[in-house]
Simulated scan of single mutants.
Amino acid sequence: MKLYTFFRSGTSHRLRIALNLKGLSYDQVAVDLRREEHLAQAFKAIHPQQFVPVLDTEDRLMIQSPAIIEWLEERHRDPPLLPSDAAERAQVRALAAIVGCDIHPVNNRRILEALRHRFAADEAAINDWCGTWIGAGFDAIEALLASDRRRGDFCFGNHPTLADVYLVPQVESARRFKVDMARWPRVQAVDAACGQLDAFRQAAPAAQPDAG
């Protein structure tokens, strides 16, 4: 498989984690967002929204990280990223959705570029904007983790799930935007536990060929 990716993209990061957890090999094609390579017509032919990531399975081009990760879960079931119980699956999906639906969409590059160029936001304002929504989401995740008496080292149980796949890239993003993580000890503990696993370490932005 071929993965069109950018080292610092949170959605690319989460997909790299999922692929690694599934033990799947893939070649990376770097799309440098800093040089606006995603806006070129050649990339638009690959993804009409001009976003990363894109997964080329040889059979088809797959877009949107939630859809791709769902496909991975259906196609490559072992190890599972979702529990077998329906209520527990909903719990894990809810944790992932706090990141995927509520934090990331208002902090992605497209939004931040609009704030910079259309509303003259400086980097302090950008960090404050991002910190506001990251903080609101992490407050909720921290509370949910605290209320789960059965929780192990990860967001749910003793093995990484979809929730961890989403959370870790958002923690990376929080640090990049200078968010003080001190008030979320459980979130930090989950991030640390994930950081012990090769699947997460190898997916980290700094470990990518296009990092720099």
Rank of each mutant, 00 (worst) to 15 (best):
L81P: 13
R110P: 11
G131H: 01
G23Y: 08
D102C: 10
D139T: 10
P205T: 00
G100C: 13
A163H: 05
A87S: 14
A94L: 14
Q202G: 12
P80M: 05
R151C: 03
D78Q: 13
V31T: 03
R75A: 10
G100Q: 15
P80I: 05
I103M: 12
R34I: 14
G23N: 09
D128Y: 08
E73C: 00
H117V: 11
S65G: 03
Y26P: 07
L3C: 01
G152T: 06
E58C: 10
R183D: 12
Y166R: 03
P160A: 05
G195N: 13
G195T: 06
E70G: 07
F51Y: 15
W133T: 00
A40R: 15
L21C: 09
M181W: 01
F119K: 09
H104I: 03
L19V: 05
Q170A: 03
R60W: 13
P80G: 04
L144R: 15
A67N: 08
D122F: 06
P209C: 03
A114N: 13
Q170S: 03
K178I: 03
D59G: 13
A192Q: 15
T57F: 09
D164N: 08
E37R: 06
D122W: 04
A140P: 07
R118A: 10
R16W: 06
D180W: 01
Q208F: 00
L55H: 07
A199W: 04
G135I: 01
P66W: 00
A114H: 14
E123C: 08
G100D: 15
E142C: 01
D59E: 14
Q202I: 05
A87W: 09
W133S: 00
Q28M: 15
L72C: 03
F154N: 10
T132E: 09
L162W: 03
S9M: 02
R34A: 14
A174N: 01
D180G: 01
L19C: 04
D85Y: 11
A136L: 12
D153V: 10
K22E: 09
Y26K: 06
K178R: 14
I46S: 05
E70R: 10
G10C: 09
D27C: 06
E113A: 11
A182I: 12
A94E: 15
A114Y: 13
G212V: 03
M181L: 12
T11D: 09
L55D: 07
W129V: 00
Y4P: 01
M1E: 08
P205Q: 02
A40T: 15
L82C: 10
L95P: 10
T161P: 04
A211L: 02
R201S: 06
A174I: 02
S84W: 11
L82V: 08
G131V: 01
R8I: 01
L19E: 02
R116M: 04
F154G: 08
M1I: 07
G137S: 02
V106N: 06
F154M: 12
H38G: 05
H117M: 09
P66G: 02
G152V: 06
D85T: 09
G195I: 04
L95R: 10
D148C: 07
E113G: 09
F200T: 04
A193V: 08
V171H: 00
L21A: 07
E172D: 14
R14F: 01
Y166V: 02
A30S: 15
D27S: 14
R14K: 09
L167H: 09
S173D: 11
K178G: 07
L39Q: 13
A140L: 13
F200L: 04
Q170Y: 01
S65P: 02
F200E: 06
